[in-house]
């Protein structure tokens, strides 16, 4: 009874080897496992033809004709339709010798949003990232696609500051059949109440807006300087329980946030005179200080010279 001792490193390599997708005689050489999700695993691979690294998402289930198979193929086609700098581009669709289906996409080098936030506390920098995220989601919505699983883990920040939305595995495109009523799709922490209840027919762009609101709330937490009332109101409006109370689209959410950043009133917060003063002060801070300095100087001159 043998069984020579294997190191932990060897076990890890063997695990990977047993899991590795067979790419046959394709031009892709699998290097490492990047992550594992509900539908499939994502591998780092090298495109030997073009000499660049790519990511390959491979479906777990090799059963032909499975619903997951159709879902992955649909995801690949859907990504191909969503050509936008903020949505990870797809390069190829593969049928592996073992019957599994995979698609090849850009290997985004950078950090996931949740990892990025750990090292970036600046409020305005965080908001700029969020604006880009809203822009990508708004683009998908314009194309009739609802992501349905937006969360920090599905957002990557690239090396050049680009913000990319990943994993459209459970996205829904307009005109496609819906899941059976009661099916819960998404991630509990970020999913809208209608998603959590499995009300699949009520899920629309506003469900993504809810997730964006949750993400925004997470980005405001721990930011420096702390978020003020208008910002918190924007996050609260986006993540309202009632879809009708949310922003109607990611574009509307983005627009309100831009209004905040440029010192204009936001739709999420009816202004009191005090809010208005505070906003105007933030917007014209330099001018206010210049006028105050001038007045102080004039006052001093008046007091000392009497003129």
């Amino acid at each position: 009874m043998s069984g020579a001792w294997l190191s932990d490193a060897a076990i890890a390599r063997l695990r990977l080897a047993a899991e590795l997708p067979e790419l046959g005689s394709s031009r892709y050489e699998v290097r490492a496992l990047l992550g594992r999700g509900g539908m499939g695993s994502v591998y780092l691979a090298h495109d030997t033809g073009l000499g660049r690294d790519v990511a390959i998402k491979v479906l777990h289930d090799p059963a032909p004709g499975s619903a997951l198979l159709a879902r992955l193929q649909r995801e690949a086609r859907l990504l191909a339709r969503l050509e936008h700098p903020g949505i990870v581009p797809i390069h190829d669709l593969l049928h592996l010798p073992d019957g599994r289906v995979a698609y090849v996409m850009q290997h985004v080098q950078g950090a996931r949003l949740d990892q990025h936030l750990a090292g970036e506390r600046g409020l305005e920098a965080r908001l700029r990232v969020f604006l880009k995220l809203c822009e990508s989601v708004a683009f998908a919505h314009d194309r009739g696609v609802v992501h349905r699983d937006l969360k920090p883990e599905n957002v990557m920040l690239g090396r050049f500051g680009e913000v990319l939305v990943l994993d459209f595995g459970v996205a829904h495109a307009a005109g496609e059949p819906l899941e059976r009523a009661g099916t819960v799709v998404g991630t509990q922490r970020y999913m809208a109440p209608e998603q959590a209840r499995g009300e699949v027919e009520r899920i629309d762009a506003r469900s993504d807006v809810h997730a964006l609101g949750r993400i925004l709330a997470g980005m405001l937490a721990g930011a420096e300087p702390p978020a003020n009332r208008p910002l918190r109101a924007i996050a609260a409006k986006a993540s309202a329980d009632d879809p009708a109370a949310r922003y109607p689209s990611a574009a509307a959410l983005r627009s309100d946030l831009e209004a905040f950043l440029s010192g204009r009133p936001v739709s999420a917060l009816p202004e009191t005179p005090l809010d208005r003063l505070a906003r105007l002060y933030r917007r014209h801070r330099v001018a206010v200080w210049l006028v105050a300095a001038y007045l102080a100087m004039r006052g001093a001159v008046l007091l000392t010279t009497g003129r």
Binding site: A18, G38, S41, H60, A63, R71, E179, T183
Partner: peptide
């Protein structure tokens, strides 16, 4: 646990 194999499918 050993090979990361899951055979889950969405409900029909």
């Amino acid at each position: 646990a050993l090979l990361g194999i899951t055979f889950e499918e969405p409900r029909p």
